[in-house]
Design a protein around this nucleic acid. Sequence first.
DNA 1: GCAGTAATTTACCTGACGGTAAATTACCTA
DNA 2: TAGGTAATTTACCGTCAGGTAAATTACTGC
Lengths: 207, 207
Amino acid sequence: MATPSKAGTKGVPREVRRQQLLEAATAEFGTRGYAAASLPAIAARVGVTKTLLHQYFGTKEDLYVACLVPVGDTLLAAIRSAMGPDAAAPHTPLRVLDGIFAALEGRRESWFVLYDPSLPPGGEAAGRAAEYRSAIDRLAAGGTADVLRATGSADPLDADALNHVWQDLVATLVRWWVKHPEQTPQAMTERCSRLFAAAALLVPGTP
Amino acid sequence: MATPSKAGTKGVPREVRRQQLLEAATAEFGTRGYAAASLPAIAARVGVTKTLLHQYFGTKEDLYVACLVPVGDTLLAAIRSAMGPDAAAPHTPLRVLDGIFAALEGRRESWFVLYDPSLPPGGEAAGRAAEYRSAIDRLAAGGTADVLRATGSADPLDADALNHVWQDLVATLVRWWVKHPEQTPQAMTERCSRLFAAAALLVPGTP
DNA sequence: GCAGTAATTTACCTGACGGTAAATTACCTA
DNA sequence: TAGGTAATTTACCGTCAGGTAAATTACTGC
């Protein structure tokens, strides 16, 4: 037996493997980003070959979309339910954060597959991700617009900028959370509450 | 003449070419990030071959460092001068932003070469970038710590998180600025001032 | 016990990138 | 005007990624 070939089934049923690969891919995409994530690396996480990955999910973009959809659906639902009917209430931002943290627990890095800047432009992956993002955008825009109107500013560019700031703020908090695995979702929400209060002090002349 | 070879000098003096290549590389690194930036693409911006790039700057990491140093020095100086002696003054954040915007005008994307997450870990590039970042970190930490102490929170994790939030906020604003080239630095500073005021309204119970 | 099928790998192709050695052309000066 | 040198390209190599076709093994029901 010069070549003890390792081909052949390992007895892992299709659905199980599929789930394993999906999780590995989501983690890899979430931490490294689409462009830097490599199919061999993802497959290696599960102890398997990249060919198998292709057989299960097709092309790299297909695999990304397969990862994206559940993440996007989950997050969108969480945010929708957290915003509720009165999007302009002052406590809404914290509720949204709390909803996101809860939805992300156990798969924290998956937030970043939704906001991956390295997706090949024009492809299906970028398109689907953009859809999810703009859905979230619309929700957030409602909140930020109300807030801005309350300060008297009607500048649409201000609104756009504030929207970006808010969403990147969420990303920052999640990124910090990923680096502190021992922090529970509730602890994060409380920390955010304190940070908000501190940030308010930075602003001079609050009427 | 079957092969009209295009080799040979084009009469561009060394220093000029060097500067052209540096600018092109900085732009490419700043927009695409280190990993996604390709030497052929950088060279093509100047209408030249990647080999020339190597001859001028050596390896890809060497080129990155060559881009990093002037950017880092400029920004560090701008931030230092903006913070001045009283880092805890409530108007300091805006002054820092103003300083950064002014220093970045004309090369806005260069901010992101300093905060490139795709640098090969362990290499010289990552090391040098980390030095610049931690220098800025120390400056920012002074400000955020004072602010936090004023709210009564002594939690070091809060301080760390606030620091991250602040620095990512800067990145977000610069990114937004890059996407709106017509905005002047002063306009950006004023916009930030309005946004700060709006954000303060989000926080309930400001004493 | 045997055939069929499900699960998986081996082997291979293509393309791009980082990197290097050698050749090529244009400029400048004696 | 001839030779040297500065500026630049051509041609090439190794590596690794994405992707596909074909072979290989293990499980399963009859």
